[in-house]
């Protein structure tokens, strides 16, 4: 029998705590595959956020730290500046990066920190029970927008990647969707590029935003959630390379 697919070594062999159809599993696998393909397992340090991915160190078999909500880019700065030979990446959700940690990500980019940021945008706060995120779509029903998000009073979805792309210190910004095999392959290529930039000592921050399904709090089946990304989310969060 021929092996056509196997778990990449950096992804730990363990049961997942994520919901069925959640995008974190795909994103975790992609990051681990990239780490292994680039041969940087032994010198990579990962940063887990507060949010559903807080337990990321249970899946990533590299040195990991779990930090205060939103502060990953500051922690990453402290690590990379003192350890320029290490590959430092943060893995952050939309609450972590786009709400409470807005200042930290903008200033890490503005200082051109040599970091790789994996930004999971599922338009909702998962861990706390499906509340509105800054990236929540207009009209989207969440635990704190029971009538659907209204621009008047609750604001518009926040396009953080576009904000970051205008900064000279952000050298690579790309948005991908975890919504079909083709899209997922593209996401992996983007992640690989983001890590390669750091490996090649490129002077600046690289960020890959991944539109990621949350069937549980979108109140959809996993296939519908995939379609929702393709048909609805990409209208507000267009896919493609924004910078670099």
């Amino acid at each position: 029998m021929q092996t056509v697919f196997k778990r990449t070594p950096t992804l730990k062999d363990c049961p997942t705590h994520y919901c069925p159809g959640c995008g974190h599993g795909i994103a975790h696998r992609l990051v681990c595959e990239v780490i292994d393909e680039l041969g940087i397992h032994g010198r990579t340090i990962g940063i887990a956020p507060v949010g559903c991915a807080v337990l990321a160190y249970d899946y990533f078999d590299v040195d990991m730290v779990e930090v205060a909500h939103g502060r990953a880019p500051a922690v990453a700065t402290g690590m990379k500046r003192t350890n320029p030979d290490k590959i430092v990446f943060s893995y952050q959700g939309d609450g972590d990066l786009a709400a409470i940690g807005t200042a930290e990500i903008i200033h890490a980019a503005h200082r051109a920190e040599q970091l790789t940021v994996v930004f999971i945008n599922n338009a909702v706060f998962g861990m706390t029970g499906g509340q509105m995120a800054p990236t929540t779509m207009l009209g989207q029903i969440t635990a704190t927008t029971p009538q659907g998000r209204q621009a008047d009073g609750q604001g518009y979805p926040l396009n953080v990647s576009e904000l970051l792309a205008v900064l000279p210190g952000a050298i690579y910004v790309e948005r991908c969707g975890l919504c079909s095999p083709a899209h997922i392959r593209k996401a992996k290529a983007a992640l690989k590029h983001a890590f390669e930039l750091q490996i090649n000592n490129a002077k600046g921050l690289s960020l890959v935003e991944l539109l990621s399904p949350c069937p549980t709090y979108w109140r959809m089946t996993p296939p519908d959630a995939m379609l929702h990304i393709q048909n609805e989310m990409t209208k507000v969060f267009p896919l493609g390379r924004l910078k670099g």
Partner: peptide, 26 residues
């Protein structure tokens, strides 16, 4: 050695957290 003027005290203490986690004196 490393000097960074951070964007806030929140960031400063978390940069300390990052450097300390790698075993550096900070």
């Amino acid at each position: 050695r490393v000097f960074v003027q951070s964007e806030s005290e929140l960031a400063a203490i978390n940069m300390v957290f990052g450097a300390a986690a790698t075993g550096k004196r900070t």
